[in-house]
Simulated assay, not measured.
Amino acid sequence: MLVNPDLSLRAAVTPHQYQWIASPQPGVERVMLNRVGGEKGRATSIVRYAPDSWFPHHPHPAGEEILVLSGTFSEGDTHYPAGWYLRNPPGSSHQPSSAEGAVIFVKLGQMQRGESRPVRADTRDVSRWTVRHGRECCPLFSDGIEHVSLERIPAGATVLGGPVESAEMLVVEGSLREHAQEYERGSWVRLPPGTYPDLVAGRCGACVYLKTGRFANPVSLAGASC
């Protein structure tokens, strides 16, 4: 399966364009934002867990990245409410579930081979936030190849301050605007190398998951769904 597969091309999906597709596991649905391969492929998705839904224990040979958007997402006996950021490195495994239901943003099979450190970050913790370039930033991951953060962007401010090698963003709160196009909460945008001075926060500002850098090619097409 191919969904927005070419990383050199711009891609965007707004909530009005969401198409919920059933996963192999009852009670779990996905919106496919980017996919190369089938159930064991490289993927970026919005995943929705119904209450009391789960996936069997499974490995992630090429890693997995998760941002909990609503509800509570669980791995075994550990529970992560909305706002938690998880990064499971290549070779990790887990048994995901949700007792109350959850919506998560998930990236599968997109990590570098050498990445080995798991990350658990509660973005609700005010001590994790700093002011950088005139706006609040919650750093989540950086390895010299890619940089991941949550950014609170004031109304009308430019999202990207200069040229980027590549950029990917998910609007967590508020909205973004570019000319006549508005990207409301839940919108996903992927940008190729370039400058984007006209991409700004909407009239109420925005909180955005932002990844910039040289995006990794999949190290493997093996690994189960989240």
Rank of each mutant, 00 (worst) to 15 (best):
residue 43 A to V: 09
residue 199 L to Y: 02
residue 29 E to G: 09
residue 102 A to E: 04
residue 30 R to D: 06
residue 35 R to G: 00
residue 75 E to K: 02
residue 173 E to W: 05
residue 171 V to W: 01
residue 8 S to P: 04
residue 95 Q to E: 14
residue 132 R to L: 07
residue 2 L to W: 15
residue 49 Y to I: 05
residue 218 P to V: 06
residue 7 L to M: 15
residue 84 W to T: 09
residue 36 V to P: 02
residue 187 S to L: 00
residue 37 G to Q: 04
residue 209 Y to Q: 06
residue 54 W to A: 12
residue 17 Q to Y: 02
residue 131 V to G: 13
residue 101 G to I: 11
residue 221 L to I: 15
residue 218 P to L: 13
residue 114 G to K: 09
residue 138 C to N: 10
residue 223 G to P: 03
residue 186 G to D: 03
residue 126 V to K: 07
residue 41 G to H: 03
residue 154 P to K: 12
residue 187 S to N: 04
residue 25 Q to E: 15
residue 103 V to M: 06
residue 29 E to W: 09
residue 175 S to P: 14
residue 160 L to G: 02
residue 89 P to W: 05
residue 167 A to S: 11
residue 217 N to S: 06
residue 19 Q to L: 14
residue 125 D to V: 05
residue 57 H to C: 02
residue 90 P to C: 14
residue 11 A to I: 02
residue 153 I to M: 00
residue 118 P to W: 06
residue 164 V to C: 06
residue 26 P to Y: 05
residue 126 V to F: 01
residue 7 L to S: 14
residue 137 C to E: 13
residue 156 G to V: 03
residue 107 K to L: 05
residue 165 E to F: 11
residue 206 A to N: 07
residue 100 E to V: 13
residue 20 W to D: 07
residue 185 R to C: 09
residue 166 S to Q: 15
residue 80 Y to M: 13
residue 131 V to R: 15
residue 186 G to P: 03
residue 41 G to N: 10
residue 163 P to E: 14
residue 224 A to P: 02
residue 136 E to D: 10
residue 91 G to K: 08
residue 186 G to K: 01
residue 126 V to E: 11
residue 226 C to W: 10
residue 144 G to A: 05
residue 212 T to S: 08
residue 74 S to E: 15
residue 46 I to K: 00
residue 155 A to Q: 04
residue 165 E to L: 14
residue 123 T to W: 06
residue 40 K to H: 11
residue 106 V to Q: 01
residue 158 T to G: 00
residue 129 W to C: 09
residue 220 S to K: 08
residue 31 V to N: 00
residue 163 P to I: 15
residue 43 A to C: 12
residue 182 E to V: 15
residue 57 H to V: 04
residue 137 C to S: 07
residue 156 G to P: 03
residue 111 M to F: 13
residue 103 V to Y: 04
residue 42 R to A: 05
residue 171 V to Q: 00
residue 116 S to K: 15
residue 124 R to H: 12
residue 162 G to A: 11
residue 104 I to K: 00
residue 205 G to H: 12
residue 67 L to K: 04
residue 82 A to E: 11
residue 191 L to G: 01
residue 203 R to K: 05
residue 208 V to L: 14
residue 61 P to H: 10
residue 51 P to Q: 09
residue 9 L to K: 12
residue 89 P to A: 05
residue 160 L to D: 04
residue 144 G to M: 06
residue 69 L to Y: 00
residue 149 S to P: 00
residue 154 P to M: 14
residue 52 D to A: 11
residue 194 G to K: 07
